[in-house]
Design a protein around this nucleic acid. Structure first.
Length: 587
RNA sequence: GGGCGUGUGGCCUAGCGGAUCAGGGCGAGGGGUUCCUAACCCCUCGAUCGCGGGUUCGAAUCCCGCCACGCCCGCCA
């Protein structure tokens, strides 16, 4: 049940290995790969190139010998091996296609068997200083998609947001919130706690920058007091900070939920100070052979790990640093989960590597920790900053996208052929699904390491190679399924009647889905699923044009095609679900 | 200065050692709807895969050098 393609791949690998060893040839590299689109085989091998020297014959001759030696009879899905030039091509049996339709007709098609692993995915973890802006939006979208992907690949997944509530920023924020008067501030951009409070944060930062030395120093003293209070474990200080943090975070959560990105737990940095775990980390690091005491501060000499500079883990005033607390945080993850995944901006790369080294020093096995990085989303004119108030708020982007999607829906209403009468709720629903989906797909479909420059027109393009393009395929499937039901057509798993190129192409693409999930999950690359689902949609649209279900030659063909549509619907719905994009029942 | 990342047609993007077409999309031009929703499909235009070397039977993909851009090199997070 783990996917026909994956089983076929195993069969082919075994068959090639057997044939090679029977021929007395090395089996270390089987060269099994996917052939180009125009080759009708499902898999191919390029071993002949590598073995040509050894055999003393040209690759095409070697390919013939290997193909002849391969015995397909013991296998269910491998039908035959045929040489073509220097390649050996592998063709599949009807059972391969039949099992694909049968598997695809299960609603959870594509999901992988339970791994039994508990995995924690930490993502976003943006400082609670103000509304989420587009520059940060890649993190929740990527992180949430990775969590969904790992879940679909058979893992038990928890999503965590690590709340930085112990740093200087929140101290500044708390001081500003307690110091400035609302009447001195501009109106909030939205009636929500994060938009409300960020005004104090911005005012506070501006004050620190512009105030004369004496006033600034006085403010700094108050800020330092808050930081010291946190470190000393003063309950009262925690409460003061929490008033600010919890309110801002509450607002930010509402933005994130629109994506949607939801969390199982918000883990506060201060909890590792209060619980004593951070102090414990300090004690153990001080006792390690890498610890040095320089300039009144405790540091780690990480040169054996390839780092030029020392990593300070305890300030000269005796307080801990972000990384120190994060060490305690990660040890806690190791205790409670089998694997930990963290989604971070590229600016945290060095810090993440140092964290890794320090965790090793503390005796942890960091092979269970995987960090994945992404580049920032910038505006054409530069970066975005919460503190300075520059950038596009995520809420504004989503609102704009939904509004444009609504315009599209309304425009298309007139030329609509289908007589299913979309009501006001449908229009709302479609605008939201398409609008949010478009933003999400635009972000999740690109390699995370590539930088993105945010441009309205490009982000909100609903044409081909976008979420709506794929979502439309789902709506088409639902449309066919609904009509078929009223027409009394029952789906069948009947491969012999699905023999056109369009049908076979679609079957082959559907068969690959579980293998795509497997590989994407292994590499933490949801964009591979986005690429796949786009290819799937292209293939489906060709099938849709050429092979009518409701107007098929006869009832048997209609029933067989309906089975294929069912499998298609599950494939596209599940792929979209992994990407966190809704699958509309109509558009 | 050092480290990491990115560089694919006018623009965006996939591929990251294998099939003398490097896939898609946007854009530009031309077609398609008495037939399951045209947010669709088909055709045409357009790429020395940043530059220069090297390894290999084979390189967009690996190695070296260079150039451009981004990020990092705090007792900030």
């Amino acid at each position: 049940m783990a996917g026909m393609f994956r089983e076929l791949r195993s069969e082919v690998e075994e068959a090639v290995e057997t044939a090679l060893s029977d021929l007395g040839l090395p089996t270390d590299d089987l060269g099994v790969e996917e052939p180009p689109e125009d080759v009708p085989a499902v898999l191919a091998s390029s071993v002949a190139f590598r073995l040509a020297g050894e055999v003393g014959a040209p690759p095409p001759k070697v390919a013939v010998d290997i193909a002849e030696e391969i015995d397909a009879t013991p296998y269910d899905y491998l039908e035959s091996a045929e040489p073509q030039g220097p390649y050996v091509n592998f063709f599949v049996s009807d059972a391969y296609y039949a099992e694909t339709v049968a598997a695809g007709r299960d609603a959870d098609y594509g999901s992988l068997p339970d791994t039994g692993k508990d995995v924690v995915v930490e993502h976003t973890s943006a400082n609670p200083t103000g509304p989420v802006h587009v520059g940060r939006a890649r993190n929740p979208i990527l992180g949430d998609s990775i969590a969904r992907l790992l879940d679909f690949a058979g893992n038990d997944v928890e999503r965590h947001y690590y709340v930085n509530d112990a740093g200087r920023q929140v101290a500044v924020f708390t001081w500003a919130y307690e110091t400035f008067e609302e009447s001195d501030l501009p109106d909030p951009e939205r009636d929500r706690s994060d938009y409300d409070l960020v005004r104090y944060y911005r005012r506070g930062n501006a004050y620190l920058e512009d105030a004369d030395e004496e006033d600034a120093a006085a403010a700094e003293e108050e800020i330092a007091e808050i930081m010291q209070g946190l470190e000393a474990g003063e309950e009262e200080t925690y409460e003061r900070v929490a008033v600010v943090v919890d309110q801002v975070l509450g607002g930010m959560r509402q933005s994130l939920e629109r994506l949607p990105a939801e969390f199982d737990e918000f883990v506060k940095e201060t909890s590792f100070i209060r619980g004593g775990e951070a102090d414990d980390v300090v004690d153990r690091l001080q006792a390690s052979e890498y610890a040095v005491y320089e300039d009144d501060a405790w540091q780690l000499d990480l040169s054996p790990f390839g780092f030029e500079k020392n990593l300070v883990f305890l300030r000269s005033d005796g307080t801990t640093l972000y990384t120190t607390r994060d060490l305690a945080h990660h040890e806690w993850k190791f205790e409670n989960y089998d694997e930990a995944v963290t989604v971070l901006g590229e600016d945290h790369k060095l810090q993440a590597e140092q964290l890794d080294a320090a965790l090793e020093i503390l005796g942890n096995d960091t092979s269970d920790l995987r960090q994945t990085f992404y580049s920032w989303v910038n505006l054409p004119e530069g970066g975005m900053s919460t503190r300075e108030g520059t950038g596009v708020d995520l809420d504004d982007l989503l609102d704009e996208s939904v509004a444009r999607a609504r315009e599209e829906v309304e425009e298309r209403l007139d030329s609509r052929i289908r007589d299913d009468e979309l009501d006001e709720d449908d229009i709302d629903r479609i605008a939201r699904q398409v609008g949010i989906g478009a933003v999400r797909y635009d972000i999740v479909s690109k390699q995370p390491t590539k930088g993105i420059t945010f441009e309205w027109e490009r982000a909100l393009d609903f044409e081909a190679q976008s979420a709506p393009y794929v979502q439309y395929v789902h709506a088409r499937c639902r449309g066919i399924l609904n009509e078929a039901e009223s027409a009394g057509i029952e789906a069948e798993t009947e491969i012999s009647l699905l023999d056109t190129d369009a049908e076979r192409d679609l079957l082959r693409v559907i068969a690959r889905f579980p293998a795509v999930i497997e590989e994407a999950a292994e590499d933490l690359e949801p964009h591979a699923v986005a690429t796949y689902v786009r290819e799937f949609a292209e293939t489906f649209n060709r099938f849709y044009r050429e092979c009518s279900v409701l107007n098929a030659e006869d009832d048997d063909v209609a029933a067989a095609r309906l089975g294929l549509v069912e499998a298609s619907r599950h494939t596209v719905a599940n792929a979209l679900s992994v990407l966190g994009i809704e699958a509309p029942k109509s558009m």
